[in-house]
Each structure stands twice: as C-alpha cells, then as structure tokens.
Design a protein around this nucleic acid. Structure first.
Lengths: 223, 223
DNA sequence: TTTCGTTCGTTGGAAATCCAACCGATAAGA
DNA sequence: TCTTATCGGTTGGATTTCCAACGAACGAAA
C-alpha cells in the first residue's frame, strides 16, 4: 500500500493531506486495494456501487454497450484518476457504464459514507477530503458546462469560434495556444476534422482569425 | 425572511433540515437577502464571487455575451433554484456569465466558506448541508454527462436513438413516456425540430420504434 | 359549432457536413 | 541521405441538415 503514497498525494482527492497522515487516514476510511487482471470487468453497467474507485496502477476503460451489442469507449482512466464519484456522491448508485481493466490494474476503493461521516476520533482530514470532493465535482461541472456551450452551437464554424473565444478569454489575450491538435480539437467539439480544417481556413481567409499550428490569434469579430 | 422558509425547505440545498432549524442555521451561515429591481444586473461576467445565490422570488436570466455584442440566454433561474454554486465550490471565483433580474427579484446569498467550515457551536446541520451540496453537484454532473452522450452523437438519428434508449433503460421497459414535446426534445438534443420529426417518421416506418405523442416503444434494435 | 392557437409531420431547395482520398510539410528513424 | 509516419489543408461528390412554409389534428375558448 505504502508504495502508492507518492502517487496518491498527487490525486486531487488528497491534495492538502500530509504524507504522514496517509496511514491513519486510509485506515480510518477503510480504504482497500483490489487487483484486476487485464480484461477483467470491475463493474458491469447497472451495478450498484457505494465506493469511489481510484486507479493506482494499470489502466481502465469505461465502456457503454448500446442495445444492439456495439460497445463504445467513453473514457480511459489512468493513475491517479477517480471513477464513480458522481454516481456515488449523487446517490444514484447504479453505474451507467461498464468498467474494464485494459491492463493488470490496482484500484483503491473508498466507501463514500466513510468520507462524509466525521469519525469519532475526529480525524482532521475529513474536512479536507470533503472540501476536495466538492471542488472536484464543481470543477468537473464547469468543464462540462463549458464544453456543452461549444458543442450546442449549430454549425462547425460557431462551435470553433465559441471555443476560440473561450480560450482567448481564459488567456486574457487575443493570442493564445490551444492544447489540442486538429484531430483532438475536432473530437472535443464533435465535428469532422476536415470540416474543421476547412472552416479554419475560411476564417483565416476572411481575416477573422489567424493561426499557425496551435498558436491562434483573434483578429476581428463578426460574421 | 421567515415567509420564505416554506419555499427554502423545498430547496435541494436544505432538504432534511427541519423547519425549526432555519432560524439558527441561516444566522449561523450569515445568509443575507438582497433585492434586485427588474432589469438590474446581479453579477457581471467575470465578477469574482464567493457566495452561492438562491432565488426566493422573481426570475433571473444567466446570459452570455459573445465578443461582438450578441447576448444569448443560457438559463432561466426561478425559485427556489441556485446559481453560482459550481463556480464558488470549484474555487474558480470568476463567473462565466452575467446574471440579470428579469423581474423584481429577491436572492438569498450564502457564503460558501460558512457552509463547509463547521462552526464552533457545532451546528448539526453543517454536515447535512455539505452532503446536500455534494449530492447536488454530483447529480448535475450525471445529468450533464448523460446529455453530453446524446449530443456528441454524429447524426440526428443517432442522437434521437441514444436518447430513447437511455429513457428505455431508465424506465426499465421498452415502452415509456418522455417529458418533452417535439420542440423541447429538439432543443435538448440541439437538432432541428423538423429534422427530428423526419427521422422519427423514418424510424417508425422502418419498424425500429413506434410512438404516439409522448409515448414511445422501442421495437427493434439495429440499423 | 366555430374560431383560434398550438403541435407535429411533411416537403423542397439551399446550405452544410460527411467521407474518403490525396498531397505537401515536417519530424523521426534507419 | 533516404524512408517512413504523422499531421494538417484541400477537394469533390454523396448525404444530411437547415430553413421556411404549409396543412392536418387536436384542444380550448367563444
């Protein structure tokens, strides 16, 4: 267990918790490590869960099966990411996806109740954990809202501009770098890469934006 | 203040709090009521905020101005809904939208720190409030994830089927009712109403689904 | 019953997107 | 250097979506 402490201390859930507190804390939380060989299913879609999972080793896939058998990968989870926190904290209980180990993996499970129930020994880190959890959920909310705002735009052009303006706003400047290449940006905005490239070229030709690789500039607003 | 207690007791933030506790609680939280005449701006986009707002009377609009002056309504907030909780709890501080009173409105403001900092008098409701807040954020997460899953589908047909399958899953049956009319469903999936109607007709003709008004049946899976 | 408003399906032409393919530029490796 | 792989822009035709408009069905109000 101890060998994972350095990793765990970088997890958003445990930020602000001193390394010296991990022993007490994990014991108080009743956290348990479980190993899954490559290919094994951690959760089946629809399973009832009460624990938050934190991958400490390996790699997981969250997958969704549509009713006629096609499975699509929703996300990949790598150390030290969490999964299941929204379902568990929301009290929904039933996971909407299946979780599969794509490599031999080790997962730290923590019972949600043990986090939010301040224990009799009044461990100091409960408050910290709770604030961390709230922050994690809230930030995820903001990320999703932002993305939603972009992809609900009608056209590829509007999606792109919505995204670029947001980036400019965050950078506080008309020039900025974006963290995606074209394909990744297309995926994020859920548009075609070629259509995206075409729109970008058009906007550049119209003098609305300029760019080179991942560096962008917003030159003029308007149609 | 007291006249709002019945309303507040139906707010997700205060579920499980006894009516008798409101006096103590609101005082302990340092909650304050502020009134805004119709048309007045509550927050300007980019303002730094540390309080969660809870509308107890009136109606607010969250609006976003794109850089060339067009403003679009992101959401309407009506009693007893909250706003700003994701930003405040996420520690981002700067609101990404402007908040405007569309009618004479009264808002209850609560400092986030006072919620998560258990007070010296150890008020029993802090723990409850925190759990409520976590649940609210987590459920919003799930709602958004679900919607995102539908909207990121490529075509109108796939968006529709993704939504309908989700509804069937939730209902635990191949037949179910949906809470939207056609226009609302189109807005939710961010597609055209007419294109949606057309796809629905086609799917019905192909024997994939059947429907009448808001009542649907999934008959056959596959292309 | 008549009238009016709303909802929903349909349609046709314009516009946008998808898809596969190709090419040039650049970087990495042999 | 030559080869290979990746990335990004472009292109053209098939497909889908958009948009405005219309009409049928239904329910509420007069």
């Amino acid at each position: 267990m101890k060998k994972y402490y350095p990793l765990l201390s970088h997890s958003p859930l445990f930020t602000g918790i001193g390394p010296g507190d991990f022993d007490t804390m994990l014991h108080c939380l009743g956290a348990s490590l479980r190993s899954y060989p490559k290919g094994q299913t951690v959760y089946f879609e629809g399973d009832t869960v009460t624990e938050i999972g934190l991958v400490v080793s390996g790699r997981l896939h969250l997958v969704k099966d549509d009713v006629w058998g096609n499975t699509s990968i929703v996300t990949e989870i790598a150390p030290p990411e969490m999964f299941g926190e929204a379902v568990v904290c929301g009290g929904t209980s039933r996971v909407p996806v299946s979780v599969i180990a794509k490599e031999d993996s080790v997962i730290l499970f923590i019972d949600y109740k043990r986090i939010v129930t301040t224990c009799s020994s009044a461990c100091a880190f409960h408050a910290k954990l709770i604030r961390n959890m709230i922050r994690i959920l809230a930030q995820k909310n903001i990320l999703m809202s932002t993305k939603m705002e972009h992809i609900t735009q009608r056209s590829t052009k509007e999606k792109l501009l919505s995204y670029l303006m947001e980036q400019a706003r965050q950078a506080g400047s008309r020039t900025f770098d974006i963290p995606y290449n074209r394909q990744e940006l297309a995926d994020y905005l859920s548009v075609e890469r070629s259509a995206l490239s075409a729109e970008m070229s058009k906007l550049k030709a119209d003098g609305v934006i300029d760019y080179k690789k991942n560096h962008f500039e917003i030159r003029r607003e308007g149609a």
